[in-house]
Every structure is written in structure tokens, then in C-alpha cells.
């Protein structure tokens, strides 16, 4: 939080600048997520998010299959069966 307003970046009038590390500075008031609450979503966004859930589920299953296949685990199980 600036205690003294910024002025143009020149030093002709004898001004000087103080550079403060963020951790040493006065905390700023940020945008509050708590005050904002949950996001309002249109029906399209809600449907898109449901599709994303399905995508994630299927793609993770597929990856597990690909990894087991690459490691030869599926072939071993098939031979055993």
C-alpha cells in the first residue's frame, strides 16, 4: 500500500525512490473471494463442467490402460488367463 503517492519517474527535482520488499510492505486490500461467494454459472457452463467430469474419468481410465499395456502387464494377465 503506497503511503506516499507515486510521482513521475524522474529525479531532477532531488526526489528519491524507496524500493520495499513485498514482505516488508503494508498489506494491500485484495479482491475478496469470500465476499464474492460462488460464481454464477449459465446452463452452458454447467453442462460443460459435467462433460469435463466425464472426460476426466474416461481419459484417466484410458491412461491406466495405456500404462498397463506398455508395461506388459495386460499381456501377462491374458497369457495367464
Amino acid at each position: 500500500m503506497a503511503r506516499i503517492p507515486n510521482t513521475p519517474d524522474n529525479n531532477d527535482n532531488g526526489s528519491f525512490f524507496e524500493v520495499v520488499h513485498p514482505l516488508n510492505d503494508v498489506p494491500e486490500k485484495k479482491i475478496s473471494l469470500d465476499e464474492a461467494g460462488p460464481m454464477r454459472m449459465t446452463r452452458t457452463v454447467k453442462i460443460s463442467l459435467i462433460i469435463l467430469r466425464v472426460y476426466l474419468f474416461l481419459i484417466i481410465l484410458l491412461l491406466i490402460y495405456a500404462v498397463l499395456n506398455s508395461s506388459g502387464a495386460i499381456n501377462r494377465v491374458m497369457k495367464f488367463a
Partner: peptide
Amino acid sequence: MNQVLENA
């Protein structure tokens, strides 16, 4: 924060 101190 960069602060400009206008006079010495």
C-alpha cells in the same frame, strides 16, 4: 511498493 519521496 515503489514509493517516491518527493524531497530530500
